[in-house]
Design a protein around this nucleic acid. Structure first.
Lengths: 227, 227
DNA sequence: CGCTCCGTTGAAACGGTTCAACCCACGTGG
DNA sequence: CCACGTGGGTTGAACCGTTTCAACGGAGCG
């Protein structure tokens, strides 16, 4: 596939004029990452950001003892590392390929130039950052104000809401990573899943989870009931 | 003081042309809030955002049991609630006056119009959002990856770095609120402060805290040593 | 003076982590 | 084709940091 077609297919850039898309094509470049490969590390100087053309990218933080907190796993069409373009010059987190991925690298300077000339693009970028901010804010709320069962219940309800029919969920990440996303460890996640199963709230078979009692899960997520 | 002078004095708007500042003056309005008054609540529809002219504003989240997590306390020249302008229509947190304050309310539509015509303003706004994102990301890291002593040490070092000379810190918020900012409760904060004092790391007299052993505090903040 | 607000201290309880063992599915190489 | 190692997941028991609950002290104020 030609690069310009990839670019035109990205929601963030689809509003650009053809000539702008061509300019972007000339400046940006495709890059492939094998599963597990580092895209950037915390503290790295930023000279641009990435758009995901295919694959997924895990963005996370690391404690001194090596525990990792996943901030988000991004998929095709989403941007990674864009905040560092507009303030500071360092990435505040780590990013690595969650599976074999191809990304589009967009150099900072040319992108800023593009934004300067296109209000639509700048508004789109503002929307992206606002959404990110909202997401991370929700994570703070989750970590600080809810205990793990409530966080897990919220997350499962979220997955079920977007994920298809009748409380049927197919986890697309390992349970270990789900634990890290929820700010806990695999052991705790496992215990809570078995407890939820024992209470008849869910059925859990490997990476397939089914919500059996939505009202009960809602109550858990809201913190109105304990496990 | 005339409204337009207030506006011209705000960093975010100082780059605007005189005519733009005049347009903004015509559209925005000053609002006073008594200490403790609600600026907006979580879930409120957003029709614009606020700039702080004087005073301070506390932005926070609330758990179902009433525990509060402070996201940040903003001061003069800073914006509040700006993320909701560009995505979604709901405020994702609560905001209330931390002391008697006067704010400038800027309606969403006219601000977007302004941004559309001024690339400099849009880049400034992107920088603001990026900085916010960075801040909240750091909070996540703190909450999820460090225990309270490390968080407190980091915070004190931060205050000392920007706050003046020789490890002398003057807390400008109550210890109870500091606890909430750190994601903990007053009792825990108090215990840790006495422990730090006992270890000779700090001296604590009311709201005045002095760092006596910077290296030790660095080690604590980095998680290399325990209390 | 008595009230309230804030901070401090102690003892007990709790949620979550740590450490260790174990199971299973899977892929690899002898 | 089977033995082996590996990674993901589960389970149990001990441990630990933090919270909860309760009580108390001091400062500020009507």
């Amino acid at each position: 596939m030609r690069l310009i077609d990839d670019i035109a297919a990205l929601p963030l850039f689809s509003g650009l004029s053809l000539s702008q898309q061509e300019a972007l094509t000339a400046l940006s470049r495709r890059q492939s990452f094998k599963k597990g490969a580092t895209v950037f590390s915390r503290g790295d100087g930023s000279s641009g950001f990435y758009m995901i053309l295919a694959g997924r990218v895990k963005v996370f933080q690391l404690s001194t003892e090596g525990k990792e907190q996943i901030l988000h796993i991004f998929g095709p069409g989403e941007s990674v590392g864009e905040a560092a373009v507009f303030s500071g010059a360092m990435f505040p987190a780590y990013a690595e390929a969650y599976e074999d991925s191809t990304l589009l690298f967009i150099p900072r300077d040319s992108f800023i130039e593009l934004i300067r000339n296109d209000p639509t693009l700048s508004l789109a970028m503002l929307a992206v950052l606002s959404k990110r901010l909202r997401m991370v804010t929700a994570l703070v709320e989750s970590l600080s104000l809810k205990e793990v069962p409530a966080r897990l219940a919220s997350h499962l309800l979220f997955l079920s809401a977007e994920g298809g029919a009748a409380g049927r969920i197919e986890l697309d990440i390992s349970k270990g990573h789900l634990a890290s996303l929820l700010g806990t460890i695999p052991e705790t996640l496992s215990r809570i899943l078995t407890k939820m199963t024992a209470r008849g709230l869910i059925r859990s078979e490997g990476s397939r989870i089914t919500i059996l009692n939505r009202a009960g899960m809602d109550a858990l997520a809201a913190g109105e009931r304990k496990l």
